[in-house]
Design a protein around this nucleic acid. Sequence first.
DNA 1: CGTTAAATTGACGAATCTCAATGCACGTGG
DNA 2: CCACGTGCATTGAGATTCGTCAATTTAACG
Lengths: 232, 232
Amino acid sequence: MSDSTFPEVRSLDLFADMSDENYAKLMRGAYLQTFPPHVDLIGEGEGADFLHVLVSGAVDLFSRWNNRETSVMIVKPVSTFILAATIRDARYLMSARTMEKSRIVMIPSQDVRAIFDLDAGFARAVVVELAACYRSVIKTTKNLKLRTALERLANYLLSRHRAYGAPASFDLDLEKRQLASVLGMTPENLSRAFKALQAYGVAVNGEKIEITNPALLQKFAKPTSLIDDDQT
Amino acid sequence: MSDSTFPEVRSLDLFADMSDENYAKLMRGAYLQTFPPHVDLIGEGEGADFLHVLVSGAVDLFSRWNNRETSVMIVKPVSTFILAATIRDARYLMSARTMEKSRIVMIPSQDVRAIFDLDAGFARAVVVELAACYRSVIKTTKNLKLRTALERLANYLLSRHRAYGAPASFDLDLEKRQLASVLGMTPENLSRAFKALQAYGVAVNGEKIEITNPALLQKFAKPTSLIDDDQT
DNA sequence: CGTTAAATTGACGAATCTCAATGCACGTGG
DNA sequence: CCACGTGCATTGAGATTCGTCAATTTAACG
């Protein structure tokens, strides 16, 4: 299986700039694996032996402490996860599990570090990627510390709405219990938050979300690219 | 002033591995500036024109939204800040202000990016540094989402206690209002949290903290290297 | 000293969680 | 095709955590 070149992986920003030779070297020890839904991939605290690239499906990165659990982020294809642990040869800070049937390319961490030293294009791409990840988590922290749960939900809905191109209605791409965990609240609290947002122009019907009064919701949510946007 | 070589900066992990030539090139456009206490250095949303290196003093990285403010992290010497924005040529996500009289070396961002492409040792150091920053913020997120304010304070005290070598007593290195903001709570709430921790073997007298019953406090705080430690 | 800012304290209210019960959807096996 | 688990979502009641406001005390510093 290791003679495959994983075209979806090659086209990722992270691997696009490197030489064919180094890419082949990197993939020599890599293998593609398919997992059923709800399978544990990684336990926090384990050594980061592989860089993971999610080719299809969805993965939940979560963490436990003192009998509590929270979802830190959701990974969608095509992207890598736990790059930082691989670079530092450290233990994973988060556990990972598939949410759906998922195909994942696993690249030995030592190969990633070795090629990093050989290929300047790859090194540059790793830095740019890590910087983006860092900024994304900073935004998460600001979101948690500066906003109430209701405000986080309002901004999440606006963000999805915008990402989909502001359609009349759209479906949540997460189970509500998952969404609650990502937003840092309980499912019960999320349920009540949805109700509370009716007063700000949000209509909910199962998975279907309709933003009936975008101006009103924005006035409440006060979205900002310094917390909510994905890019820059 | 640009003929100085800033020896404190040179010895940083970030710059230690690069060639003398490239280091000189990087510092050609850099300059050292001294700031009084409580001076605004950076406003969030501004373009990241400079990488900052704190040589002495202390800097607060904070953020505002909707008339609220929170301290995201405190920078102590000698270390850089806002490396990620520099790398991505993006806007700062956090504001910065001096807490004390501080000396700061400012390196033009474009020079950082240019040398990054020239010097593999520097590139490697940047990646390792960014990965550490990323992991640190992930820990912050876990701390916020998995723990109550009381638990965060308990673990903060244990962490400082350990960092100082478990002395009989030690001084807080932050103003209490600053600490409250870092821990994601109000000063009033922090005050009550200190009182509540008396029941778990913590004695507070102004700045002086005494952990009279480490075992009891640990039993309550349940510290873990996956959230609390600084390294790995 | 006198001025200023921080820290503390009390009273109150808002935000959030917990526990328990119920409703609802989906899939499986009879 | 339908009964019945199973798990998620919702709702209610109550407790806890946490924030706000105001007053007071304490500490720092010129």
